[in-house]
Amino acid sequence: MRIELTDLTKTYKGNVHALRGLNLDIPTGMYGLLGSNGAGKTTLMRILVGLIKPTSGTVRIGGHDIASGEGKLAVQRTLGYLPQNLGVYPDLTARRFLDYIALLKGLDSRTERRRRINELLEVVALTEEADRKLKGFSGGMVQRVGIAQALLTDPRLLVVDEPTTGLDPEERIRFRNLLSQLAGDRTVLLSTHIVDDVAQTCRSLAVLAKGRLVFHGDVGALVSRAAHQVWTVTTSGPAPTWGRVVSALPEGTGVRYRVIAASPPDPTARPTDPGLEDGYLALMESDRLTHPV
């Protein structure tokens, strides 16, 4: 399901520009949306799922213009959405919660609903906990209930907003794998500020900064933004002052620094292969220089 954004703008009260003239084409498959906090990711997600309206510009999803009532409804029929900080009704069991959402999504047949819920509880590994009240669930379990509700109608478009925030490492890996498996012939739009989540799951991505689109393309292209700019410096002295220190790992009596810089930050610096996080940071650094405010 293809998503086309044309000159998309969102301005909140007080002249706060959340999105500034976004043009983007999102193909079928897993697609990452990266950006720092306040970059406009959540605003974009909320526009795509029909929770808020853009100030100007158009959004077409699977050929439907979501500005029209029919278009929005058509998209919502094929949509699964996992919002940032999903909440649940604490006194419902996981099964009852899913049943309620399924009814709202139009799954009217009780047999079909029951079958689908059992299937999804299995997928998210919550079958054993299905009849427990949600108030006793951990953050990771609630996120799994969230993904189950998003998949109830086998949606063609799955929008997940910061899904791994607050999860422990094991839950995060489990969740990422689940999303990757789900992609297939769906469009899965993963919004996050955790670069590793995109690195492990997406082939293509877009990067937002202060409401602007600063990059879109495949992961390799973003990684190459940091080509010949990543160095390691091992020293027992002070940290390098030239460039941006990405990590600092104690090693023997010294510390091994990973630095992004246009030229060697230290005479002992050794070039190293960039990763997605390096590419992202190099991009953000160059964007800061070209758009200081």
């Binding site: 900080n85 649940v88 999504k105 139009g106 969230g146």
Partner: peptide, 14 residues
């Protein structure tokens, strides 16, 4: 809204 369920409910076709 307080519980954070509204986001999901508002994106259903109902």
């Amino acid at each position: 809204t307080r519980l954070g369920v509204a986001g999901v409910l508002d994106t259903t076709p109902t």
